[in-house]
Design a protein around this nucleic acid. Sequence first.
DNA 1: GTTGTATTTGGCAAAATAGCCAAATAGTCC
DNA 2: GGACTATTTGGCTATTTTGCCAAATACAAC
Lengths: 100, 100
Amino acid sequence: MNKDVKDYRKRADIIKALAHPTRLFIVDKLADGELCVCKLTGLIGSDMSTVSKHLLVLKNAGIVEDDKRGLQVFYTLKCPCILDFLECSEKVISSKKNSL
Amino acid sequence: MNKDVKDYRKRADIIKALAHPTRLFIVDKLADGELCVCKLTGLIGSDMSTVSKHLLVLKNAGIVEDDKRGLQVFYTLKCPCILDFLECSEKVISSKKNSL
DNA sequence: GTTGTATTTGGCAAAATAGCCAAATAGTCC
DNA sequence: GGACTATTTGGCTATTTTGCCAAATACAAC
């Protein structure tokens, strides 16, 4: 575990960025195309500052990109392969149900 | 965000279980086949109690299964699709490098 | 039964995360 | 310039997570 601890840490940082219900929701919504912060805030229902911080986490992880146009900031998904994460987590959930 | 908040929470729980360098390392090692706790502890280099707790997190998430044989407990990967997570995170990392 | 090995559990202190509010920033319009 | 809107940042507290140690458990061998 010594040679590439850094690699595991980098990967963990990305996965950590996804490890939150609100951020998964954001990724899900962005799958259909870009959205501005105010639109996402409306969908999520918590404080805009909270949403903005979640978006920053995703941006720092390299998962989303931002594009300021006028007063609004639009966010887009940078790596669509992220969506496979959700697909796999569904499999884990259903295999869990079956083993009960 | 109201109808299926629970779904997002469930998914987040699974992803959260993966969001740690040590646990990613464990998953990576288990990809080649089952391993006992003592073997993993040797590879990781931290306290066995710590490794055991990491394994519990993965088990509760439905990602690994345990099988006690004699004194040892062997852990196996339950959903190999988990490995795609790592592949995708590599893509995010490299796309991040390119955008700097 | 006792001894020894593999693993889990409990407890605790340190560190990281989350979410709210208020204040700051950036851009538009008049 | 001032007023207004969209977003970010700072700060604070509450909650969660981590990792170590010591103690408990489970099983094997004698």
